[in-house]
Design a binder for these strands. Structure first.
Lengths: 122, 122
DNA sequence: TTGTATGCAAAGCGTTTGCAGTGAT
DNA sequence: ATCACTGCAAACGCTTTGCATACAA
């Protein structure tokens, strides 16, 4: 059975409070303000279980370590700033891309990442 | 000044002979048939220098370690098979995606990965 | 009281680096 | 003869795991 610990709550809250996907280390930093002494291993263990139970969603971008955001948003993509490296949600999608695949290949999913300058860095 | 070693040649040849982007370990395995005793550190060092001098191009996919392919191909994307995990080139592109970004953001580049079943796994 | 969750430290994994020896020029 | 390149092993950064303790139920 799953227990409600201060650690788990502060980790979930830190991610919910953020306006963008966070790295494990950023989550640790944020959650430690509520739970001093919180360990990075606990963060990783909870990220894993919260992802498995559907509370969180992993955001994997090319060449980047996984970030985490609250699940439940509709299908969307991401934007990474070339200057500050931060990642933002993009609530838009190019739509069906099956036509791009080579013959004989079946397309079931797609991932799209946009790169450029974010609002703050322009 | 850069030197022509057997190691460098076999690494470049292994990548050129492949029909898809390869992982460092796959490159090591292939190159070792020509150069037994070849070390993984040498592979990494040459992948780095060959990428810097424009001979190779890094292929970074979400949640995956970097793969390498011969550079010089036109702008293209990649397809990863959900069954065998192999990566293939996709010589097509959805085109301009600037319109997808949130207001205030500038789009300069994009990365697209398609997922599904490859020719062999269907 | 029970057993899951935690914190710490050690272990894993892929990649990088230091160093002494090798070999292309 | 140089000095870039190599192989090995150690170091790295991020993530996972083992273990004894803490604490939610």
């Amino acid at each position: 059975m799953e227990r409600n610990t201060r650690q788990r709550a502060s980790i979930r809250d830190a991610i919910a409070a953020a306006s963008r996907p966070l790295l494990p280390q950023e989550i640790l930093d944020a959650a430690q303000s509520n739970v001093p002494g919180l360990g990075i291993a606990t963060v990783y263990r909870n990220l894993k279980s919260l992802t498995e139970d559907g509370t969180l969603k992993e955001v994997k971008l090319p060449g980047e370590n996984a970030r985490y955001e609250i699940a439940g948003h509709a299908h969307h993509h991401h934007f990474q700033c070339l200057q500050c490296q931060k990642v933002f949600d993009v609530h838009a999608c190019p739509g069906d891309l099956s036509r791009l695949a080579p013959e004989g290949f079946t397309v079931k999913e797609h991932e799209l990442t946009l790169y450029g300058d974010c609002k703050d860095c322009r």
